[in-house]
């Protein structure tokens, strides 16, 4: 493999008490990218991240982070030396103050960045002497982010980094992420329910549905690949089946056939013309629609 993947999983599986959370997940995230990880609740996003960090043991398949094996306890310690994690619950030590937990965390990372620490303490306006349990959710998120950004990590794993935050705070978080990627050699892998966020800062995306990756790749390339072809007929639209590769969905609506394609429009338009339509239109598809299309309805 010529590329160096920062995160790589192959056929990753995890079952909890007979419930399959991951059913063969294949994922590749290249260095230096901001990769958005989208999926419905319970699709397996948090489980994936926890496996990468050695918090959860997979039941099958492989996962590698920075070239190290996630299932090996020794490699896992090394992974965590170079990776930072912000979980969904922003779980920290409630009885410590902001200052104490910063000092505590810094002690584990010889490459701790004091300059970034000062910058983010100031920027996020974190009160040094306040106990963590007295912080608001937004403050706790920012503190968690600070602890993640200052440790000189090569990879950031973030589970719903902006959940529960007001738009201004969410933007602060996104900006800190963008700035970090711009100025340091770092890769960001974040899961989110906010598609607009992923649209805004990600250059790669992976969509997970029921334990498998259904769509993955460069975001711009995906936006170019996915399109909607609208075919208008003189009379009722025929019940045609399209054999072009990449046809995801065909919708009949009176005189209009709408086709969602994931492999470009050309082949579909070819087949469409054979049906002698009145008009054929090709439209862009938003990431939201790609997501809604790929992540099927709950069972």
């Amino acid at each position: 493999m010529a590329e160096s993947w920062v995160i790589e999983t192959a056929a990753l599986r995890k079952s909890y008490d007979g419930v399959e959370a991951l059913r063969g997940l294949d994922l590749q995230v290249p260095a230096g990218s901001i990769c958005g990880f989208l999926g419905r609740n319970g699709a397996g996003k948090t489980t994936t991240m926890k496996i990468l960090l050695g918090m959860v043991h997979p039941t099958g398949g492989q996962a590698r982070v920075l070239g190290l094996a996630a299932e090996s306890p020794r490699d896992s310690v090394e992974i965590r030396r170079r990776t930072a994690f912000v979980g969904e619950e922003k779980d920290l030590y409630g009885t410590m103050t902001v200052e104490e937990i910063v000092r505590f965390t810094a002690a584990f990372f010889p490459r701790w960045r004091d300059d970034l620490q000062q910058r983010y303490l100031r920027k996020f306006e974190l009160p040094l002497n306040r106990k963590i349990k007295a912080l608001s959710r937004g403050m706790r998120t920012k503190l968690s982010l600070l602890l993640a950004l200052c440790r000189g990590a090569e990879l950031l794993l973030l589970d719903e980094p902006t959940s529960g935050l007001d738009p201004a705070m969410a933007e602060d978080v996104l900006q800190a992420l963008v700035a970090q990627v711009a100025n340091e050699a770092i890769t960001v892998f974040f899961s989110s329910h906010q598609i607009a966020e992923v649209d805004q800062i990600a250059d790669r995306v992976a969509i997970i549905d029921r334990g498998r990756a259904v769509v993955a790749g460069d975001l711009d390339e995906l936006r170019e690949r996915f399109c909607r072809v609208r075919i208008v007929f003189d009379g009722d639209a025929p019940r045609a089946s399209f054999r072009a590769p990449g046809v995801e969905r065909v919708q009949r609506d009176g005189r209009v056939l709408t086709i969602l394609s994931s492999r470009g429009a050309d082949a579909v338009v070819e087949e469409a013309r054979a049906l002698h339509p009145l008009s054929v239109d090709v439209d862009r598809v938003t990431l939201k629609e790609i997501f809604l299309e790929s992540a099927a309805a709950e069972e």
Binding site: G32, S33, I34, E171, L174, Q175, V178, A179, V181, A182, Q200, I201, A202, D203
Partner: peptide, 8 residues
């Protein structure tokens, strides 16, 4: 940083 979009 200003526009909060990806550097790439």
């Amino acid at each position: 940083e200003e526009l909060v979009i990806n550097v790439n």
